[in-house]
Design a protein around this nucleic acid. Sequence first.
RNA 1: GCCGAAAUGGCGGAAUUGGUAGACGCACUGGACUCAAAAUCCAGCGAGACCUAAAUCUCGUAAGGGUUCGACUCCCUUUUUCGGCACCA
Length: 894
Amino acid sequence: MKYEHKEIEKKWQKYWEENKTFKTPEFDELDKNKPKYYVLDMFPYPSGEGLHVGHPEGYTATDIIARYKRMNGFNVLHPMGWDAFGLQTEQYAVKTGTHPKIRTEECINRFRTQLKQIGFSYDWDREVNTTDEKYYKWTQWIFLKMFNSYFDEKENKAKPISELEIPDNISPQEINKYIDSQRLAYIADEPVNWCPELGTVLANEEVPEQIEKGYTVVRRPMRQWKLRITKYSERLLNDLELVDWPKNIKELQINWIGRSEGAIVKFKIKKNKQDIINPLKDISEYIEVFTTRPDTLFGATYMVLAPEHPLVKEITSEENITSVNNYIENTLKKSELERTELKEKTGVFTGAYAVNPVNDKEIPVLISDYVLMSYGTGAIMSVPGHDKRDMEFALKFNLEIIPVVIPSEFKDKAFKVIADEKKGEIIVSGQGMQEIKDTTDLEKYFEDVKNGRTCFTEEGYSVNSGFITGLKTKAASDRMIKWLEENNSGKRSINYKLRDWLFSRQRYWGEPVPILHLEDGTVKSLDESELPLTLPDIESYKPTGTGESPLASVANWVNTYDKETGLIAKRETNTMPQWAGSCWYYLRFIDPHNDNIFCEKDAEKYWMPVDQYIGGSEHAVLHLLYSRFWHKVLYDLGYVTHNEPFQKLFNQGMILGEDGVKMSKSRGNVINPDAVIEQFGADSMRLFEMFMGPLEATKPWSTEGIAGMNRFLNRVWRLIIDERTGNLKDIICDSEPEKKSQKILHQTIKKVTEDIEDGDMKFNTSIAQLMIMVNELYKHKKLYKEVLEKFLLLIYPFTPHITEELWTRLGNVPSIQNTEWPRYDEELAKADMITVAFSVNGKVRSKAEIEFDTDEHTLEQMAFDDEKIIKHIMGKNIIKIIIVKNKMVNIVAK
RNA sequence: GCCGAAAUGGCGGAAUUGGUAGACGCACUGGACUCAAAAUCCAGCGAGACCUAAAUCUCGUAAGGGUUCGACUCCCUUUUUCGGCACCA
């Protein structure tokens, strides 16, 4: 009887389902004395195309871990669900008129069937679906928690809005406005990323991907919901140290958060050379700039504002109004892409001047689109000598360049250093130096900077900079900040690139935002008891294009009233972005059917954090940053007990087509997992995906490769089953295994155990060892049941179906899952005989088989007795002998 | 441009507290079995030198240099590929 993968796989999948083999007991019934292990996949978006071979790669790895951990006595949580809100389904609805709910269900059913075919050991009773009302009720609930919270700067954490202190100087009319301005979820009326083709706005994090897909993204002012993720910049950055994540993902988040240290400097403004604007009463007396190089302040020769800067209109002088307005208009017309494209710098003069606080020098104020309103203060001081962009701009507009930093190698030529016992070093300018060194290259450097031939942007020593001249960049910056603070002209400041999260979408297929807009103009949240706020049925899913969601047209849904006050109200018609549901799904898996709370606290405390999280790196700054943020809010409010959700993260690599390029329909190189399973079986596919190489590597698919895996499983089958009779092979016996079999077995246990335990996800070497063991057993005349059983246990996490079958055929009771993982004996796992290399001058000249742990002296003797070695050292002087036990002997001879 | 990862046979890959380079699989070649094929089994398989074989030797882990008795592994320089960011002041 041959190995019939189809029959066997169907049989065991049915068995597992009927017996709920992989069910994680409810929290009440759980044996809490056992250690826990939460192993999670990034749940998929169930697209219409179904699963592709990339999905099962990570899922197989987590499945191996889950099965292994269960065998090692852990309570394992290994769930699966659906991230099912999304534009693709909605676009399909627009095209076909099919309700997204129906389409979503179809896709989910397809995905579920496919996943079950691969034999993953999920606890399907915990399946979640982000589009299910029972699920998104809690997504909305968490949103309300954010709406009803503020960020306490002193304690660096979120707190309920009821604890917000209202400053004394706020009038009663303004209180609501003040409260609204502090909420973690708030409405902002600012330029946003508008995508006309999709008919919706996008988060900053989403823009690059959509542009790559060929969509356009323009900046457009709109009233939008935002989440105050920027308040968590520092914690999101610092807490990366607490988690075991790949370096590159941490790096991506660090870059995205983009912390930079520096100072804010206040510049007084003159509308023209004579007047100072409203010096006493107006707050626009100053314009603030952010700089990371306060040490270069003496080199600031002009100031540039972003065209959208609110003070531009105020400071522009009469004669410059036309050109300034034209420029602003042109900028606003540009898309985000055009705006950030590197091109020749443009800009116009406002007619105003700023006063440099350190030397009272008047410098012109210009506007240019290379300064972004969204970063820092939207204004910069320009130091063209030491900033490339400023240099480029200065050369084009013929602005002054002053060198204020020199590279370290010029230090001795520029300064004379006199040691002083009390004050350390006193620096005297180069002009007064007694021993004048050749300073021509220093002078050339100054000339080059002034002429724009050189732009030195690195750290060095300050020159031409008054009280900081002679100081190293770091010290000069500190000294400057101190001066600014003493003179009320600025302060130390830390800036982040991270922006608040644009959280609303003008689409139908998302969680409705549970907010009412009352007739008196106030904004009010629904009561928790009113959740879920469900999506109404609708005529057309088409985006309106006006920036309003299709929900706006459902009058009987939109128009309502406030139960508390009786005021007429309109519902918020924006929905939440796709990322919302995935921000907390890992918590719902812990307690998926609870109607009273999103996740019961004791259960949360037991299961969290996720011990191992596996998914693609495309979520590095989207899902992984957003969910960390939500988790921290929930942590601050006391709903979860851990600061970070995902302790250990691993990114699987991409699987390419057989031609070595990314799989795509247009290239026709897409591999369909259904066809692979049909031909070779799920076990072969699982085994092959793990054998292709380390999990994180990007590697091409190979049909011939998977045929090889199938061949191997056939070999495993025939090792135990006699194909002619269908019975066990005659050479299998019950007696105590002899040493040769024990040896290979224990070596294999050791290798596989260590490979799974070390977390490197290099299962290719475990499989190689399993193959070596099979090859070895084929050479044996006698097979021992015990050895075969342990072999099955070892390969079980990789290929569960065939092993369940062989396990029962060897006379055992299913499921093999309930058997303990085998232990190895270190002594038995050691090799008896080992090959050592004898080399002369580092070149291997001979080898010998010897007993393991043969002592150094014997090794040396053997080397000198070796004929080939004698040949190579004859007539030479022995200079040195290096002996490494169990490895080699090297003789150095001349 | 900046940051990160990587480069080993025909292919996927293995080997690092520095110690036999190429485990394991694929492809390929030869043989056995067969009327034949498939399947299976056995053997070979980095390049080169000597007519052939064995033996032996030389070269070989992107390129060049260095440290060392000994380097895929450590250090410096360069090239290429992939991923990310990109006027972030």
